[in-house]
Design a protein around this nucleic acid. Structure first.
Lengths: 229, 229
DNA sequence: TCTTGCATACTACCATACAAGTCAAGAGAG
DNA sequence: CTCTCTTGACTTGTATGGTAGTATGCAAGA
């Protein structure tokens, strides 16, 4: 069965399972805070809402629970996982470690084609300044993905995506706080260091950049204590 | 509700879901190469073997597929994932990056209690020399877990466990090759560096250690090409 | 006022049935 | 013999029913 409203691209020969559609939809809703931390969602409710049976909903729930985005409490209910400060900080820790090694690799052997691609993205990022937070977060994801792909670490990117989900939930809540211009400046410094073959500088740049993303976490926690564990 | 003084292990009444049991069993079988890469396993077959229905088997399959240990091909069949050299190398890359940052943290503020614990484990590891590969791999896992826990990164450890699974599959195949004594020596050098507060030395030690683990990968691939993608 | 027992209405877990896609063996035509 | 098509025995995907565990409200009793 097909989900209504989600199937623009599915007219192609690609059949995407109901589970995957539900997974993507719910994941986005959680990260965007359409489903708030602590909110209760039941298999039955979601199944009826999308006109599918409970089983694919359940399987999508399991996937999301594995990512730490849902908490399934047997015989009690399923809830959007509350934000855990240690979990978010550890996610950042892992992401920082991995991306630091990635940019070190890139800086040790800078490829002109990659640098050009990155600089091109920087231009577009500057055009977003003043625009929507969501547009920037998409561009930001593309930028970091380019770094990983450029280092030939597509598989490692999968790990980063998982860590990013935890961080982005917080980040979305702080969309009123963060300065896009400042983040683009940090991206620029990073690319400059890579282009110059400055591994140490690149590592410092990415670590500083990633640590800054969550600097508003204490503020968020104070503003929305009900979203935290 | 849990009664005071009665922990989970002391109660036979603790119900662990069928899914989790299947997941743990199958995961162990895959890593230990009891289920070889490329082998076909069907939901029905496993369900009948364990006397359960297809549904929990299916859900355990999904979990294992998310970890990259199974490959589910819709309407075709489910197979034990063949070992992908890029995937294994990326898993090592991620693990190395994370553990490097962990030991740097530890070395920057070495705690005597933790050092004592680690040295205690080193003694037991030396007693295993000449023993079974499986015993050492258990002790090795405990050692690395202690490092992560000592740095207060329990959540990060979950990522390491996932990366380890990919590496351990290869490692098990090379159990005839690797020298336990050499690995324990590397562990010892690492602990010495941490105890001395030598962050640079600790980082070098863990990176060297983790890179050595997979040094036999080309040999394994030559001996068992059918296990590789 | 506070506790206790129980009916009730949920929940997720598991079993079973059906649907739909894949693939290979084999019949039949050329 | 070679090619094409059909058939049917697989596979996973989805739907639905039944079961046991859990929270909750309320009435009876201390």
């Amino acid at each position: 069965m097909q989900l209504a409203g989600l199937d623009a691209a599915s007219l192609k020969t690609v059949r995407v399972s109901v589970v995957d559609q539900l997974y993507a939809t719910l994941r986005g809703a959680i990260i965007d805070n359409d489903l708030s931390p602590g909110a209760r969602i039941s298999e039955t409710e979601i199944a009826q809402h999308y006109g599918v049976s409970r089983q694919p909903v359940r399987e999508a729930f399991i996937k999301l629970a594995n990512e730490g985005l849902l908490e399934i409490r047997p015989q009690r209910g399923t809830f959007v996982a509350k934000i855990s400060r240690p979990a978010v900080m550890d996610a950042r820790f892992v992401r920082e470690a991995v991306e630091a090694d990635i940019v070190k690799l890139l800086a040790q052997a800078p490829e002109p084609a990659l640098i050009a691609d990155l600089r091109d993205q920087l231009v577009r990022q500057r055009q977003i300044i003043g625009g929507s937070a969501r547009d920037f977060m998409e561009a930001d994801e593309a930028f970091h993905h380019t770094l990983a792909a450029g280092a030939g670490k597509e598989n490692a990117w999968r790990v980063i995506v998982e860590m990013k989900a935890q961080m982005d939930r917080v980040r979305f809540l702080s969309s009123m706080h963060f300065s896009v211009a400042r983040l683009v400046d940090q991206h620029t410094q990073l690319v400059d260091a890579i282009a110059a073959g400055d591994a140490v500088g690149a590592e410092q740049a990415i670590r500083f950049h990633l640590r800054g993303i969550l600097q508003d976490l204490p503020i968020i926690e104070q503003e929305h204590p009900e979203y935290f564990r």
